[in-house]
Design a binder for these strands. Sequence first.
DNA 1: GCGAACATCTTAGTCATTAAGATAACGGCA
DNA 2: TGCCGTTATCTTAATGACTAAGATGTTCGC
Lengths: 160, 160
Amino acid sequence: MIAGMSSEPARASAMADLMRAGRETARLSMVFRNAIADRLGLTVSDLECLDFLADVGSATAGQVAGRTNLTTGAVTSMLRRLQQAGFVTAERDPADRRRVIVTLRPERIPELERPYERFAEQAVRLIEGYSVEEVLLLVRHFGRMREMYLAELDRLGGAQ
Amino acid sequence: MIAGMSSEPARASAMADLMRAGRETARLSMVFRNAIADRLGLTVSDLECLDFLADVGSATAGQVAGRTNLTTGAVTSMLRRLQQAGFVTAERDPADRRRVIVTLRPERIPELERPYERFAEQAVRLIEGYSVEEVLLLVRHFGRMREMYLAELDRLGGAQ
DNA sequence: GCGAACATCTTAGTCATTAAGATAACGGCA
DNA sequence: TGCCGTTATCTTAATGACTAAGATGTTCGC
């Protein structure tokens, strides 16, 4: 609707398709994430936290708060929850005893990845059908999207 | 890690980059959506509902429930909320008085789109730099992702 | 070793959401 | 027509994640 002028109608329509497809994919990924959290008996925030920990190994409670956009109070109770469910261990940092170091229990990782497994396999299969140039185009596109998201989030006053 | 065999290391690394970028983008889009809902003083579910209504014009309460993955009870109170905030009108269907027809107030649409505006403009600008072939590749890719999401959601037992 | 800054925890309260069942309206069938 | 099963929404009570504000314990600079 806001469409910029374009000489060829095929181009304009392809662009509109892309805008629409992008929104739809974003929406579906949210629903997907929700479904996975449900299946694991977790909150979306819990999943976010565990994903983060899977990335970095271990982190302080404050870092978890930053990543999940939760208050420290909410993180405290989330960590109690995750600890009780055995997904995570938490202990005070001996070097700075104000801090709490949270660590994902490695033995639970497979369980967390299982719901994604089929999806990831299919994604790999899809990507294998692309040429290297095509893959690189997609990577560049996502990179630009990432920058746009971060810039907008910044502008919206979010922490992140 | 599950990577299929690949002759060229450049290809394997590009594929890994793409997998990572895809996950990161999905995550950022969630955070973004959350930030926008916050700014509008709405829930993510509210936003989902309003987006849906912007698409289809008007729908029954049950259709809204299906789209948002909420129970009918939750939809009832969500609609009361949105009605009170003036985003939506709700009236019984004269043809089938069990149904409630929910309609987005057109005059509020600009207000809902405003937070996306800059983002959408930037997206258009980005896409304008692509060739038609590149745009079509992206559209195809998103289409395949969409299918994968829907298949997995189905498998996870979700309604949708 | 004193005070400010920091990291986490506690407490009380809010609010979206769910589950279960109530209410009301439709549609078919005798 | 009148009854019954089904459908669509609403109500009620309870749950639980989350926030805000302030308490607690810890570090660091002076």
